[in-house]
Design a protein around this nucleic acid. Sequence first.
DNA 1: ATCACAATACCTATAAATAGGTATTTTTCA
DNA 2: TGAAAAATACCTATTTATAGGTATTGTGAT
Lengths: 210, 210
Amino acid sequence: MNKPYQILIADDHQMFIDGIKLIFSNHADYEIVAEALSGKDVLDRFKTQKIDIAILDVNMPKPNGFETCKLIKKHYPNCRIMILTMYAEGQFLNEFMESGASAYVLKNAGKAELLRALESIVNGQVYIGKQLKLIADVPERDGFTKSFSLTKRELEIIALLAKEKTSAEIADMLFISTYTVNTHRKNILNKLDVKNTAGLIKYASENGIV
Amino acid sequence: MNKPYQILIADDHQMFIDGIKLIFSNHADYEIVAEALSGKDVLDRFKTQKIDIAILDVNMPKPNGFETCKLIKKHYPNCRIMILTMYAEGQFLNEFMESGASAYVLKNAGKAELLRALESIVNGQVYIGKQLKLIADVPERDGFTKSFSLTKRELEIIALLAKEKTSAEIADMLFISTYTVNTHRKNILNKLDVKNTAGLIKYASENGIV
DNA sequence: ATCACAATACCTATAAATAGGTATTTTTCA
DNA sequence: TGAAAAATACCTATTTATAGGTATTGTGAT
């Protein structure tokens, strides 16, 4: 497995594939060499091309994402697989664990997280998207990235901070004490491991929270 | 001209078109109804479909963006046109003024600005991208968005703020006084018309400065 | 040579954010 | 029904940021 890594991308929506392709155009380390619209398509591609990494949608027709994943792993154990899902619910986590995939990421994760996940993958680590991780509350495992779970209230406050509101203004809008807002802000900074509001907003922008 | 607005998108790179399409998928107000790879293509599309807004790349083959724009305006004066350019240089501004287009935006402007530009367009205003405006230093005109030009030093400071540095830390790194850094920050907030660092970082993220 | 702008610096006062705590109530879920 | 997580609230001290000024120096363009 050498650079640029040869990637297959599979999803039943062509437009989504196009979007992903856009992310990798001009990227030195990764190259999209195959596309597939169904699980069967994916397996066909493997027969004819060398593929280092497969990015699979869970909700794919024919064999779905996990089944396809298991089949790939059976015949091509060296291939690394990233599973994409639309839903933040952790209901698929067990399946993920059994499927042999290396990454499990939310579809609306954003470019930054996608690339981070791929980096983990090529380093032989397992990556689970932040938003997914916490909901499922999986025990820590080697190679898992640090995760943080933002609560509803915290997300609400981030959104207002992004609208240039001060703690006092936020307190007024949410009918809570300024003390409480500040406590939330403190917790948010700790969870995201950022130093101040600048880092917070940057994180939020990069991860589609605002 | 009623919602959803029917949009034609023209660019000689199919991938770029796909990217734009992705932005408008699921958007209630705008719908991409036509694509074109050259100026001639564009005019052909107009003959067969109703188009409210045309988004044209300057560097298009056959008739280029501006020429195509003039031709469209001549035959379909009600159509609003957005011109996209890759370069921040203002050399095309005169041509833009004469072309009758309603918006002039940098290609790497980002989703947020693209939508802002479209909003201006449908409201009958003229929109010129921030980064473009200042370089050209056009006199203010009705409907033009407020413009701001960030200096090299200001951009430098924004970059450091995005790295969670404080004014004192920035002062140390740039070998200048903290007073100076604060003066720059003050000027930046004014230029960008944001209230605080949160707004500043959000702007910077949305506009590819950081 | 002059004018505009960028970059620099200083001062003061106030507002806001951050960091360190502790602690209670409410929700949620097993 | 209990335990854990989330949301709430309060206190204090310190650091940073913001807003209002003014002012000097260098530089690039006309």
